[in-house]
Simulated scan of single mutants.
Amino acid sequence: MTGQVTHPLRSDARDDRERILDAARALFAAEGLHVPMREVARRAGVGPATLYRRFPTKQELVTEAFADQLRACRVIVDEGLAHPDPWRGFCLVVERTCELQARHPGFTEAFMAAYPNAMDFAAARAYSLRSVGELARRAQRAGGLRPDFVLGDLILMIMANRGIGAASTAARVAASRRFAALVIQAFRASPERVPLPPVPRLGPASPG
């Protein structure tokens, strides 16, 4: 019997790969997905040839850099759908989506744009929007979500949350939590005063 044998990466090759992915995530968060591949290689401390050997295209690099976030996004949506109270499930999606976005700002651009030719992103976005649409209809029928809510409102929320600038990831997450709480109150069918998270100290945006 014949077949192709796959070998695990050597430790130095694994280290190169992780440095490349770390550098890519940092640069995508700070400068957007248009950052040149050579800049990723420079930040990672590897040569362009090493980068292209590991990731022949920008599409492959982006997809691999945010593979964990794609999976996390699906988990968030699935947990929201599975919640016995559709309104609480909807709130869970809002809260965790905002936090995921705050922790990984580069991911939002790839996800929202369905990064060109990256089928993983396009499929994940289509699944998420379809599932959140179903969850929203359940929450409206249950009386928790305002009846005039449309999916475009969720897109507006994501776009606004992406614009939060802060001096650190912790501050960005804190601001995002307060923003999510405000959004949930706006989406609620019946106004209800609930305590908001603390106001964070915001400053110049930083990828850290």
Rank of each mutant, 00 (worst) to 15 (best):
G3W: 13
T6Y: 15
T6G: 02
T6R: 14
P8C: 08
D15K: 09
E18P: 00
L21C: 11
D22I: 05
A26D: 15
A26H: 14
L33T: 11
M37Y: 06
R43I: 11
R53V: 07
T57F: 08
Q59H: 12
L61V: 08
D68P: 12
V75A: 13
V77W: 09
A82G: 13
D85C: 02
P86G: 10
P86I: 06
W87D: 03
G89D: 06
C91P: 00
V94T: 12
V94M: 07
E95L: 04
C98E: 10
F107G: 06
A110R: 00
A113P: 00
Y115S: 02
M119T: 08
D120V: 05
S128H: 14
L129R: 09
R138C: 02
R141L: 10
G143A: 05
G144E: 02
L145T: 04
V150W: 02
L151Y: 11
L156D: 14
L156S: 12
M157D: 05
I158S: 02
M159V: 14
R162E: 15
I164N: 07
I164M: 08
S168Y: 05
V173S: 07
A174M: 03
R177L: 07
F179T: 07
A181Q: 02
A181R: 02
A181G: 04
V183E: 08
A186D: 09
A189N: 08
A189Y: 01
P195M: 09
P198H: 00
P200K: 09
P204L: 11
S206W: 01
